[in-house]
């Protein structure tokens, strides 16, 4: 018993109380976010579940809510992803590899680094203006699918570069040393040791950037994506629309039916986001085991 005698009971009780209080606070902090999300989902579910029918995917938008679907927007979003994904992957990961593995650590690279981190935080509308100036006007791509995809690529590039850099930096130096000591060149070391070790992190970043992109509206409105498209884009130069624009279009109509359509559109978008984020987590878990 004697070794416990000098314990200051009052002070311990105090510490426990603080511990308990903070515990409660943190629970509240967490619940705010979770509850808000739940409220949103329930609200959208109530409004949108009735219109969550096959026609949503098979019909083009029309003046009558009953015959309306979001086929063109869904296809537009998918095409957009298909163009953006390889483009931003190659450019983003390439830039990250250059900055982490090849570039010297000097003033210039630090400046580039600062710029990229800043660009990752620039409001998306600014990218819309950039896309309008460069792709739509200067390169006269007009309000085309390709102009939209290029603009979105610019938007996600900094995010992909920064997250890929982090993943590459997390590969221990000892693994590079092992490769170099066997007579590997720089590229052999990068391609056979560094990239395999960081691929999970890189892909996670890419997927999260893509899921950010499919929710973006402002830059596409800026470059002139149409809000009413009753056809599928046939070429890269065709005009197009995407899901969030379609949803915005429906919400801004006065009739209740369209509000319901918008809600079901949101449900589809949310499901897509959920699938993408889930696959990012799965990827991370799968590769974490052998890193």
């Amino acid at each position: 018993m004697s070794i416990f005698q000098d314990a200051n009971r009052k002070q311990i009780a105090n510490r426990r109380r603080v511990d308990w209080l903070l515990h409660i606070l943190f629970v509240i902090a967490t619940s705010v976010g979770v509850l808000a999300l739940c409220a949103l989902i329930i609200d959208v579910l109530v409004d949108g579940v009735a219109r969550l029918q096959p026609q949503l995917f098979t019909e083009f938008p029309s003046r009558k809510a009953d015959g309306s679907g979001m086929k063109s927007a869904l296809v537009g979003t998918v095409y957009m992803l298909l163009i953006m994904l390889p483009l931003s992957f190659v450019l983003g990961v390439g830039a990250a590899i250059y900055l982490e593995e090849y570039a010297g650590k000097n003033r210039l690279t630090r400046l580039i680094q600062l710029n990229i981190s800043t660009l990752a935080g620039v409001p998306s509308i600014v990218y819309g203006i950039l896309g309008l100036t460069i792709f739509v006007r200067l390169m006269s791509l007009d309000r085309s699918l390709i102009a939209g995809a290029f603009t979105m690529t610019l938007l996600v590039l900094p995010i992909i570069i920064v997250s890929a850099q982090e993943a590459i930096r997390a590969v221990p130096k000892s693994r590079r040393d092992a490769s170099f000591a066997l007579g590997a060149t720089k590229w052999q070391t990068v391609s056979r040791s560094v990239i395999p070790s960081s691929l999970a992190g890189i892909l996670t970043g890419v997927i999260l950037a893509m899921s950010r992109a499919i929710g973006e509206t402002a830059p596409l409105v800026m470059i002139g994506a149409l809000t009413y498209v009753a056809f599928l884009p046939n070429s890269l130069m065709d005009s197009f629309t995407v899901m969030p624009i379609q949803i915005y279009n429906w919400i801004s109509k006065p009739q209740l039916e369209f509000k319901e359509l918008a809600a079901s559109g949101i449900l589809v978008l949310l499901a897509l986001l959920l699938i993408m984020n889930f696959s990012a987590i799965m990827l991370r878990n799968k590769y974490q085991k052998n890193v």
């Binding site: 221990p172 693994r175 000591a181 066997l182 007579g183 060149t185 040791s193 070790s197 052998n290």
Partner: peptide
Amino acid sequence: VETLRKKVGMVFQQPNPFPK
């Protein structure tokens, strides 16, 4: 240098196998 390192192998302080 690649040929040199092929001829002169190295083992490090911490075992550093690849995650393969």
